[in-house]
Design a protein around this nucleic acid. Structure first.
Length: 554
RNA sequence: GCGCCCGUAGCUCAGCUGGAUAGAGCGUGAGCUUGCGGAGCUCAAGGCCGGAGGUUCAAGUCCUCCCGGGCGCACCA
């Protein structure tokens, strides 16, 4: 909003020069569209002089000088911008007017819990799918990254005006589930004293044995142990349900991760959706049979080779299910964002190919999240369900706390391969940035409390209604960026900017706090009170988007 | 071999569609009390941004090659 205003000013100044015949005619928007950026020295810095310099064959400083006088004349009646200056290499720096900032702070307080919301999404329906880990074992630390990112992204999308559906896709079909059933069955039989081997392909984790121990299958005794398949199927269904329930319980109750839909892969077949999607591809002549299998011509849509839909044993592939699954999603959503682990990057081209084939081109965005490497005292802690040695997400959260975990996982770019040192995290936990941010919030609450105690005998308010101290202005300028930040994140999915922003606000606040007093000699500074109220509003909103608590005291 | 991601301060990471003297936290060193919470504030030290070319007025950012690390390359899910 501020950036657009500045762009307008610059464009006007350039056109002015053109109309006066001093500069040749060129397409202004193409250049003026270069958006102003935040700078240390001014509030907004613009580098427009540089591209113009090449075009006009005049030095950047000269161009800056010409534009400066034009813009200054216009700024006279502008309330938002108080000052424009030309800096050394040819930068134009725009400063925000304190009086205008005052009004902006006021607006934040009026909007309160709504501050930051917009209707940019125009109530379009978007689905965010995340985690979707196979229900073959506990949720591990790597899944946690996706869980918190997905939850927060969905929150942000909702705030900028989308109708958001959060989905967990349950792979309750196929080989992995068979192996899960078999693993538990074998342990179960072993626990009954029946000698059965435990092959390498079975899940090795101790949790398998724990589940086996908790099973009570009264109808099956040692005598009819030969009915292994019957037992296995029963156990498989029981274990699957149990696993899904545990995952649901962990995510929603313990990790504060919300879901709207738990979508079963099996349901695609029960509902006939799988057949419908498959027929659609067949009708478009995009499939063919080869070596007793049914193939999809994905190479015609950018994939490097064709892919199997139905295996030669008659069973559908995971890929085939996933196509039908996505089609269901697009029945009710105009857009889908899928958060995947980086180990699935190879699957992206084929999935996009299928979406293009079905007419959903450009509607699926995939966010690849790189792996988390757990390190303990310099050694990597392997996280593999198959291998059995891993730290579950639950264990991690129990140890460092949910607020710390959420903040920590959110503050890294999804492209970063993060190294997470457990021993370091434990030591550092008190110095964690999340506490820094929460402390700022608690400090504000503390001041508020102090004011409320004296409610009966209200403190006299000073007649200072305008911000002028540098620390006040810096804080106010930070606060007003919030709505634009959310819009940006909703477009580029750079979720890590949110925790960084939170830290920035906390920093500006702590700095303000040590330099400026809200309650001074029994008198309340009106402008500062409004400023810290606004700070509280923004901190609360930011933290709630991240699913982190905003404590009143610590 | 092919494809995707990463390489920035001692450590963990930012650096937004190329723009001013490359930033933060932790760690290290030096300071900060008449007053709203010291889980805070201020300052300092610490960098040939993996390497070499190229494009540009301008490269940590874009292109090519090389080195190093992670992950994929199934009729598994």
């Amino acid at each position: 909003m501020i950036e657009r205003k500045i762009q307008e000013l610059i464009k006007k100044a350039i056109v002015e020069q053109q109309q006066a015949g001093r500069w040749p005619h060129f397409e202004v928007p193409a250049i003026a569209i270069e958006s102003p950026q935040l700078a240390e020295h001014g509030d907004y810095a613009c580098n427009i002089s540089f591209p113009l310099s090449g075009l006009l064959k005049i030095s950047p400083m000269e161009i800056g000088t010409v534009l400066l006088s034009g813009i200054r004349a216009m700024v006279q009646e502008n309330k938002m911008i108080s000052q424009v200056e030309l800096a050394a290499p040819g930068f134009l720096n725009f400063s925000l007017a304190p009086a205008w900032l005052n009004g902006a702070v006021d607006t934040i307080n009026q909007k309160g819990a709504e501050f930051g919301k917009s209707n940019a999404g125009r109530q379009k329906k978007v689905q965010v799918e995340f985690v979707s880990a196979n229900p073959t074992g506990p949720i591990h630390v790597g899944n946690g990254r996706g869980a918190f990112l997905g939850d927060t992204l969905a929150n942000i999308l909702y705030w900028v005006g989308y109708r958001v559906e959060r989905e967990y896709y349950i792979n309750d079909l196929g080989k992995q589930i068979e192996i899960l059933g078999e693993s538990v069955t074998r342990r179960y039989l072993q626990n009954q004293g029946i000698h059965v081997p435990y092959p390498d392909y079975c899940y090795q984790g101790e949790y398998i044995n724990e589940i086996a121990k908790s099973l009570h299958l009264k109808n099956y005794t040692l005598k009819n142990a030969q009915k292994i398949n019957e037992i296995k199927n029963k156990i498989k269904q029981t274990v699957l349900k149990k696993m899904v329930r545990e995952i649901q319980n962990l995510l929603t109750n313990k990790l504060r991760v919300k879901y709207d839909v738990w979508f079963s892969e099996q349901s695609l077949y029960d509902s006939g959706q799988f057949e419908r999607t498959l027929n659609k591809l067949k009708e478009k002549d995009l499939t063919y049979e080869k070596e007793d299998a049914l193939w999809f011509k994905s190479s015609g849509f950018g994939d490097d080779k064709d892919r199997v839909l139905i295996k030669n044993d008659g069973a559908p592939t995971y890929f085939a299910s996933d196509i039908a699954h996505h089609e269901v999603n697009f029945l009710t959503n105009s857009k889908k964002i899928n958060i995947l682990g980086a180990d699935h990057h190879g699957d992206v081209p084929r999935l996009q190919a299928a979406m293009s084939a079905l007419g959903y081109q450009g509607k699926l965005d995939i966010i690849l999240v790189q792996f988390v490497r757990l390190v303990e005292g310099g050694f990597e802690v392997k996280m593999s369900k198959r291998g059995g040695s891993f730290i579950t997400l639950e264990e991690l959260v129990d140890e460092i706390g949910l607020d710390v975990a959420r903040f920590f996982f959110l503050m890294y770019s999804t492209a970063t391969h993060m190294d997470f040192d457990l021993s370091l995290a434990r030591k550092k936990s008190e110095k964690n940035p999340v506490f820094y941010v929460q402390y700022a919030h608690a400090r504000i609450c503390s001041i508020m409390k102090k004011l409320k105690i004296k409610k009966g005998q209200a403190k006299p308010k000073s007649n200072e209604t305008e911000l002028n101290h540098p620390a006040e202005l810096a804080l106010a300028k930070e606060l007003i960026k919030f709505p634009d930040l959310l819009l940006k994140i909703s477009q580029n999915y750079e979720i890590h900017r949110l925790p960084f922003y939170a830290v920035e606000i906390a920093k500006k606040f702590h700095n303000f706090y040590t330099q400026c007093r809200v309650i001074d000699q029994g008198e309340v500074n009106q402008a500062r009170l409004e400023l810290i109220q606004a700070t509280q509003v923004v901190l609360k909103n930011v933290l709630s988007l991240m699913g982190v608590t905003a404590p009143k005291k610590m």
